[in-house]
Write a protein that binds this DNA or RNA. Sequence first.
DNA 1: TCTACAGTTAAAGTTAGCTTTAAGGTCAAG
DNA 2: CTTGACCTTAAAGCTAACTTTAACTGTAGA
Lengths: 140, 140
Amino acid sequence: MMRIGELARQTGLAPSKIRFYEAEGLIGAVDRKANGYRQYSQRARQALELINLAQQAGFSLAEIRAFIPREGEAPHGHDRALAELRKKLAEVEALQVKLAETRAGLKLVITRIETTPPGRDCFENAEGVLKSFRGKALPA
Amino acid sequence: MMRIGELARQTGLAPSKIRFYEAEGLIGAVDRKANGYRQYSQRARQALELINLAQQAGFSLAEIRAFIPREGEAPHGHDRALAELRKKLAEVEALQVKLAETRAGLKLVITRIETTPPGRDCFENAEGVLKSFRGKALPA
DNA sequence: TCTACAGTTAAAGTTAGCTTTAAGGTCAAG
DNA sequence: CTTGACCTTAAAGCTAACTTTAACTGTAGA
């Protein structure tokens, strides 16, 4: 068991951030000592690390709160979390595909310009590159 | 050439957002008609689409402002065009790196949850997996 | 001409995700 | 028994990224 300062040190998070997450309902009920100090277990540290990972993956706190297993809802939250994560993964992979296409187009036209004799065609090719950027915008 | 409403329709962005980007210096000087209305070219549309793409990959507007070419900076000649294109290629590859990191983080969490036996505490296992991710936090 | 919609500005409001501040209480060490 | 580190709370403050509002001008159509 440890107090908030030690948990902050172990996770690299500011104590204010940990208290903020608690207030936002991202961490379950926190145990208190007689003097009112918060008491944390290693489980709390792991929960915070999971929250950190989810945030790095682009989840908002609201999304994280939606799938994080809170006290009592173990198996249901499990499936819900997986569904949310797979949805996010699909979004990221779709973006990767679009980016890869854009990159391929860029490299193609760079090669074409490099092999174009001076004084010919290069602006046409440059415009072609810009065209490869079209339609890459995704609805959020 | 088009006015802001048409550009908004083509890009899917709100006109207020486009004006905001202009105020923030993400798109260079915008051409005006005699009546004061903004006039946009396809180049502006492409710039907005690139900004969108970068944002989806996790870049802040400040980061994007640092690397996007502005409206005024048209390529001059063969070498300049090539330089622009290679710069864009580097930008796209930077987006890919960022996205790959995001995807890796996502897959990590999915694996962790999938390998949690039913009924067991999600936080109690796959600690080695979690540790392997430490220090891989995305640069802000 | 009247209506309606598109455009203009500056400034204020909003949401997320925190941090900082103010005003304390707790506790081990010197 | 005071000092100083660490803890508590509620509330205010901050930055990013926009949106909304208010007050106005421009333009096209019946």
